[in-house]
């Protein structure tokens, strides 16, 4: 049943993407408006799937790799719903909605199994929730950074046909900064919680855990980027490249940890 709901959510989440593509092809931008409610349906279906997972298992869904990926997809989709309220932000959906769909597809490939330690601890649940919130923030930052780089390229290369379809570069840069701040604050709190759990844990995990090292690398990356922005004034293209590379690295860490090391924290 959970898988059926996930497949349904993948289909519904891709309806607006397809509608937008068709609208662009037929030069009828108004055509997408009728499909916007599909995004709410998709979020509802993901949420329903997670609830069903929770009811069928002893642990919270997001504590499993499968549920974690779906939780991340949920955060990305909700983030998009918030972001789309801004003017000319439709193009961000073309990045975020397929990204959510990829996360949902990935969750179907992974059999459900919980992390090994501290599963019952509320601290652990908070730690995971905060980390996923952070990742969601970085996903939004990635989409905004990508749009910034596209818009910059168009303006620098004098390709003015579609520049009016995206927000101003200043808006994209500011939103990129805000979503990075949101993601970084959540990740910092999540990592701090994780460090606290490690100190409490008798399992000896930590130095040998690739997830910890990977997360720390991502944290340092974004910390350096935000520090450079605030102190040195790194903005615009530099900040956007930071956002894209940071999220790319994060995706690589998640993939390596899940595929090579069999799950997060060696679950």
């Amino acid at each position: 049943m959970g898988s059926v709901l996930t497949i349904a959510s993948i289909v519904t989440i891709l309806v607006p993407v397809r509608a937008r593509r068709l609208a662009q092809k037929n030069n009828a931008p108004g055509g997408i408006a009728a499909h916007r409610n599909w995004e709410f349906v998709a979020v509802g279906l993901i949420l329903l799937g997670l609830l069903l997972m929770g009811m069928q298992s002893d642990v919270l869904p997001m504590l499993t790799v499968q549920g974690g990926l779906r939780t991340l997809a949920l955060f990305v989709a909700i983030g998009w719903l918030v972001l789309r309220r801004k003017e000319k932000m439709a193009a961000a959906g073309m990045i975020l909605l397929p990204m959510a769909a990829v996360l949902l597809v990935s969750s179907l490939l992974e059999p459900p199994h919980a992390v090994a330690t501290s599963v019952g601890s509320p601290f652990f649940t908070t730690h995971v929730a905060l980390v996923f919130l952070g990742l969601g923030g970085f996903a939004l930052s990635f989409a905004l950074s990508t749009l910034f780089l596209i818009q910059r390229r168009r303006l620098k290369r004098k390709q003015f046909e579609d520049i009016g379809q995206l927000p101003s570069m200043e808006t994209l840069d500011l939103l990129n900064f805000r979503t990075q701040c949101l993601g970084f604050a959540a990740l910092t709190a999540g990592v701090a919680m994780g460090v606290f759990l490690l100190t409490q844990s008798a399992s000896g995990r930590g130095l040998g855990d690739i997830t910890v090292w990977g997360t720390c690398a991502v944290w340092f990356w974004y910390a350096a980027g935000l520090h450079a922005r605030v102190v040195l004034g790194w903005r615009g293209r530099t900040a956007a490249v930071f956002g894209v590379v940071g999220f790319g690295s994060l995706g690589a860490v998640l993939t390596v940890v899940t595929v090579v090391f069999g799950g997060w924290h060696g679950s």
Partner: peptide, 10 residues
């Protein structure tokens, strides 16, 4: 104006 606003926003 349009080009300036595309870069600078408001």
């Amino acid at each position: 104006v349009e080009l300036a606003r595309q870069v600078l926003g408001s």
